[in-house]
């Protein structure tokens, strides 16, 4: 535990030292603001209503970003689960779609963003679709691979117990895919954040990414750095929550891996 905290403490110490050095030379330095500036900025963004809109900006930004993130990841997950299982189970689906998905996965999603803005307008849809397009090919391929990994013996065994194809999917395949789907979503969340921030930076009126890129014009490091820390914290919490859920909901999965 101590060893794990050490690098964090080190980074904070280096920052504090650098910040103090710069502020000693120039008290108006904006690059490495001191702790008091951070506290002011966080207080202003999180606990004071914005003068122009009356909103508490940190919370409205967080809400806007998380809605987009969840909508994008959830739709990608639903699509990938259904499609991935079909590709994994049905040889005809695999032959038809596996190469297509492999190629689609190679398209840099950000290159498609202008198309999405043209097609869906600058509203929420384009951002959600960008996230979904960005992560769906990965999750789909991962799920298809995990389905193929289920030993053939299990499927045959289910058949000898009188299972039809539907029962095999719902009682044998799907229950074993859930925890693996959580792994897959956890791995793709990093990419999802990337696409979210990018979309917000380019065209948006709210959101964590929007705020960071807006304040960049004013070199407002006192707000940008806490925002980055906040995004990191959110990502860590979501990841930990998914891991905890996986452990609680699928005890057999952890047991099988150890």
């Amino acid at each position: 535990m101590f060893l794990a905290l050490l690098p964090f403490a080190l980074v904070i110490a280096v920052y504090a030292f650098g910040s103090a050095e710069r502020l000693a030379v120039n008290p108006n330095d904006k690059l490495l603001p001191g702790w008091t500036s951070f506290v002011d900025a966080i207080d202003r963004m999180a606990f004071q209503p914005d003068k122009r809109t009356g909103n508490y900006l940190l919370w409205t930004d967080t809400y806007a970003s998380l809605v987009r993130l969840f909508a994008g990841v959830a739709s990608a997950t639903l699509f990938s689960l259904i499609f991935g299982i079909c590709i994994g189970i049905l040889p005809i689906m695999r032959a038809t779609f596996a190469p297509f998905i492999a190629v689609i996965a190679m398209i840099p999603p950000l290159a498609v963003l202008p198309i999405l803005f043209i097609v869906f307008g600058l509203g929420e849809t384009a951002k959600i679709v960008l996230i979904a397009i960005g992560v769906a090919p990965f999750i789909t391929r991962d799920i298809a691979l995990r389905v193929e990994e289920i030993p053939r013996e299990q499927i045959v065994k289910a058949e000898t117990l009188g299972a039809n194809s539907w029962q095999i999917i719902t009682r044998v395949v799907l229950p074993q895919i859930w925890p693996r789907l959580i792994d897959s979503v956890r791995l793709s969340l990093g990419a999802a954040w990337l696409f979210l921030i990018s979309a917000e930076a380019i065209a948006s009126q709210s959101g964590l990414g929007y705020r960071i890129f807006l304040l960049r014009r004013f070199l407002a490091m006192d707000v940008i750095l806490p925002y980055v820390a906040w995004i990191t914290l959110l990502a860590v919490i979501i990841d930990a929550a998914l891991r905890l859920f996986q452990k609680r909901a699928f005890p057999w999965f952890a047991g099988g891996r150890s």
């Binding site: 013996e153 299990q154 000898t160 117990l161 039809n164 009682r171 229950p175 074993q176 057999w252 999965f253």
Partner: peptide, 26 residues
């Protein structure tokens, strides 16, 4: 019925659920 050398049981079901499954399928 069949028993293989490995992978004959379903890892996501308890002992009781594994055996009940055959009746549920039918």
């Amino acid at each position: 019925g069949v028993v293989f050398q490995r992978y004959s049981v379903f890892p996501h079901l308890t002992v009781r659920e594994n055996v009940t499954l055959g009746l549920e399928f039918g």
